[in-house]
Design a protein around this nucleic acid. Structure first.
Lengths: 185, 185
DNA sequence: TTGTTCCGTTCGATTTGACGAACACCCGTT
DNA sequence: AACGGGTGTTCGTCAAATCGAACGGAACAA
């Protein structure tokens, strides 16, 4: 949905980048991967529509997790001070979620900072199927997790639960904070 | 390196899973994706070596980020109390990193809880290329980031920086805690 | 110079993935 | 029963991805 058409150019660039990062020549990479030099040459020139088998062999030969060949490049250093950043105050309760990081194109994992006060609990309806949330409590105490199986958490506690099922977050003491990693996978 | 040979079976399963998650028939998916029914049938039966173009078209038609088709399945609810879990005490300084979550096979994003005391700083040599670390301070104060561009952080602060370049973490006050998301991408 | 050995590219032959029609099957209706 | 509409499968054809060899160029030694 966020995708247009196959990222041939990006893959081409990625292959070349990874190849000379590993200090390999076309000939050598061809030998290691079991592919033909010509195939690699064409791929690096953006001409070609590699098969899964070909791409996988490349990933193995280059020692990269494969998605590295198709996914977009990386960011740099970014700092968000406490209180800054896009804060999403929940309509319910005293609950603030600040979006710290999101994977831009296909959105794969978002990072939130949570600040909540005791009171009514925040219930979240299911997100994208396959979503998993990871929660780490920084301060205070909270009751969180799936609505039918919530867990009381203290500072330092870690809880992972499906994000594609109803779940809640309730602060039990004032100024309860935490970090949520939401992976849309 | 963590890879063996192309995950045809996994992709086959993923396609079928995503397809009836979306409530689509083979015929309908064929229409939307612009692919032939026969092609899809063969892919779902594990017979086939799809081209990048084909895989991409599938990802678009199914509305999934593409890596979802090649990557492994999902976990459930998991709880790690403070103090539990596989703790990796750093040889240097008073620094404890507890691994909370890791994506098993292709490893893509790891979640750590950090506990550190003031003293010598912990320097990390570069990890896998393309790695990015996200750091959120829970309590205390710390100096962290790339060695040539460290930042002083207070509770609630968030910092992202390349993990494939030398970086450090120094607690400035006792019992400094934080959460690190390490994405190997 | 000549010979050697790499590099990456180009080209023809062959393998093979994608297509589309025909197929067998199941189900609800007439 | 026979139908029409839906499912997913199988098979022959064609375009294209992969291969392997030959190519031109650069670097270096004898």
């Amino acid at each position: 949905m966020t995708d247009g058409k196959p990222p041939f150019e990006r893959i081409a660039a990625a292959i070349r980048r990874e190849r000379d990062r590993a200090g390999l020549s076309l000939t050598e990479l061809a030998k290691r991967s079991g592919l033909a030099k010509s195939t690699l040459s064409q791929l690096e020139s953006g001409t070609g529509n590699p098969s899964l088998e070909t791409l996988w062999a490349l990933g193995v030969a280059l020692g990269v997790p494969f998605s590295r060949l198709v996914d977009p490049p990386r960011p740099a250093v970014r700092l968000i001070r406490a209180g800054e950043g896009p804060a999403a105050h929940s309509g319910q309760a005293s609950y603030t979620a600040t979006l710290l990081a999101s994977s831009p194109p296909g959105a794969r994992r978002d990072l939130y900072r949570i600040e909540a006060q005791p009171g009514e609990s925040r219930r979240s309806e299911p997100h994208m199927p396959g979503t998993v949330e990871h929660l780490v409590i920084g301060a205070g105490r909270a009751l969180a997790g799936p609505v039918d199986e919530p867990v009381e958490l203290a500072p330092g506690d870690y809880l992972a639960y499906p994000g594609d099922a109803p779940h809640l977050f309730t602060a039990l003491v004032p100024d309860t904070t935490g970090v949520i990693v939401m992976e849309h996978v």
